[in-house]
């Protein structure tokens, strides 16, 4: 049988348990909402403006760099699995693969994109 079925069971139970706990809290807790209580917390001062503040573009750049290295690392996993059985030339392939991307990291670094300004 497909082993993902068991993973699905874990997912289902893993969803049921927190839903059950939150429902229990919903049942046992008091419910007396009022506008003051519902206002968002801003250190006791009335909230100013809306929560959608414009973000630094830096977050986006780090996410882009992350994406590239994520894909790289994932591609290296099948390489790592076969490494022990295939010998030295496979290692050299891996070194070339990683070196090319290290060049990219150095470029990003030198361009000052890794600075949090």
């Amino acid at each position: 049988m497909n082993e993902w079925l068991y993973v699905a069971l874990f997912l289902i139970v893993g969803l049921i348990i927190p839903i059950g706990a939150i429902t229990a809290g919903f049942i046992f807790g008091p419910k007396k909402p009022n506008p003051i209580k519902e206002s968002t917390y801003e250190c006791g001062i009335e909230p100013v403006g809306e929560a959608w503040v414009q973000f630094k573009a830096q977050y986006y750049i780090f996410a882009l760099v992350f994406l590239v290295f994520d894909v790289e690392a994932v591609l290296l996993f099948p390489w790592a699995v076969k490494l022990g059985q295939l010998g030295l030339y496979v290692v050299i392939e891996g070194i070339i693969f990683v070196s090319i991307l290290i060049v990219g990291l150095v470029y990003t670094w030198r361009k000052g994109m890794l600075e949090w300004v």
């Binding site: 022990g84 290692v91 070194i95 990291l105 670094w109």
Partner: peptide, 20 residues
């Protein structure tokens, strides 16, 4: 990004090389 990531990849390569 300037220390841990390069070090991690270098360590993977060193490990692979030493393993071979």
């Amino acid at each position: 990004w300037k220390f841990l990531t390069p070090l991690a990849f270098v360590l993977v390569l060193v490990t692979a090389l030493a393993d071979a």
